[in-house]
């Protein structure tokens, strides 16, 4: 039946494959660190991922932070525009854009950016996070809220109403707790 050399080679290959499968199933061959990893605490995994994510964001966006510190706002906004292409919808772009706009007196748009960022990533109001910006956001709410309320007393416009809604949202996120 297996007198032909070619048939014998085929038979040998099939036997070899079956042996390897059996060994794998029996756990005799090392499959990397997968079993080890699965034994790790998921909370450790999660914490590592969060820290890695925060470290990545802080490192990647560092040039923008430097531009903001140097008050090179137009350049910083352009750089954010570039990041928007690589990381669309990233909250860190929003939070930095918010701080640039507020620094330049563009209050309504700035508040909207802060609110959108916090909606996507709550780390910005978490004082334990390395992305924490609680103080900055608290200051923004405390300074802007009375002004927005005052302006609404004289003229009600959709954009000021939206700003008020966004400020209340930020205020409630800063307060935390059950909603």
């Amino acid at each position: 039946m297996f007198s032909d050399l070619f048939d014998r080679i085929h038979l040998l290959a099939v036997v070899l494959v079956l042996v390897v499968i059996a060994l794998l199933l029996g756990g005799f061959i090392d499959r990397g660190d997968e079993p080890l990893r699965s034994k790790r605490d998921p909370s450790v995994e999660r914490a590592m991922q969060e820290r890695a994510r925060a470290a990545f964001l802080l490192e990647t966006y560092q040039p923008v932070d430097q531009m903001i510190a140097d008050k090179r706002y137009a350049e910083a906004l352009l750089k954010l525009q570039s990041f928007e292409k690589s990381y669309p919808g990233e909250a860190h772009s929003m939070i930095l854009r918010g701080s640039i706009l507020i620094a330049q007196g563009v209050v309504g748009e700035g508040i909207a950016q802060y609110a959108a960022a916090v909606k996507v990533n709550g780390d910005y109001v978490d004082e334990k996070s390395s992305l924490n910006r609680r103080n900055e956001i608290t200051l923004l709410v405390e300074n802007s809220l009375p002004k927005i309320k005052e302006s609404l007393r004289s003229v009600v416009t959709p954009s000021t109403e939206k700003s008020l809604k966004n400020l209340y949202y930020l205020q409630s996120r800063l307060a935390g707790g059950c909603e």
Partner: peptide, 24 residues
């Protein structure tokens, strides 16, 4: 215009120095 041109990929943020910027 710088923003729109950057968004459309016609220029990049790293192509230019912003020598000065006016108030908004």
């Amino acid at each position: 215009d710088l923003e729109l041109m950057t968004r459309e990929g016609r220029i990049t943020a790293d192509d230019f120095n912003v020598v000065a910027q006016s108030e908004v």
